[in-house]
Amino acid sequence: MSTSPERQGTLDLRIENLIAAYGEGGGVPARAQWQALLKVPEDAPVTVLNFFKFRAEAQYDPKSGETPCSGQEAFSRYAAVSAPALEKVGGRFLLLAPFGGSFIGDQEDWDFVVAGTYPNRNAVLALFEDQDYRHCYIHRLAACERQRVLFCPA
């Protein structure tokens, strides 16, 4: 199903608002990555694969007022809010697990892997638009030394 020009304008505005709220890159999607998501047919489910490497100590902005903690604890703060927010937009988890290792291909070093599925691209956008999710995202950024997030239309 293609997107009408009017609907595309609305989607573009949503992306602009998300970029204004989160910024680009450095642990959040860049404009080109948002636009790639918008190329997924609007009624196709979207599966997201997340790979996380935690910092030994979370790196919060000193002005945040957050209590110092480990990267794993900061990620738990994020998960406490993000999991219900994911379900609220119609998503669900397929996998939450410690990273076991590489089986084929280059060796990689991750701490945690999460696979989630959404009913469509609009649900992914709705998650990032959720105010509670937006506010908890600082914990994810503070927690992660690096992360890789891949999406698959399925």
Rank of each mutant, 00 (worst) to 15 (best):
T3V: 15
Y137D: 15
K53G: 10
Q33P: 09
A32I: 14
L18S: 01
F112C: 12
L86A: 01
H135R: 08
V149C: 03
N17G: 11
R55S: 05
K39N: 14
Q35K: 11
A154R: 02
S64H: 07
G116N: 04
P153W: 09
S76D: 14
W34E: 04
A58G: 12
L150Y: 10
A20S: 15
P68W: 00
A21D: 15
Q72L: 05
A74C: 08
R121D: 00
D106M: 07
A74E: 11
F75A: 10
Q33R: 13
A143W: 00
R146K: 14
E66M: 09
R134K: 15
C152S: 08
P45M: 05
A115P: 01
L125N: 02
Y22E: 13
P29F: 09
A20L: 13
E24Y: 01
F99L: 06
C136Q: 03
F54H: 08
H139G: 08
A79C: 07
G101R: 00
L95S: 08
Q131R: 05
E42T: 07
R140P: 11
H135N: 12
L94A: 00
V81S: 00
L13K: 10
C136T: 07
S2V: 11
P68H: 02
T117G: 01
A36E: 14
L125P: 08
K39M: 12
W110Y: 04
T117M: 01
R148L: 14
P5D: 05
G26S: 07
G23L: 02
S70N: 03
L150S: 06
M1C: 13
A143S: 12
L86T: 05
L13P: 08
T3L: 13
R146S: 15
K63Q: 08
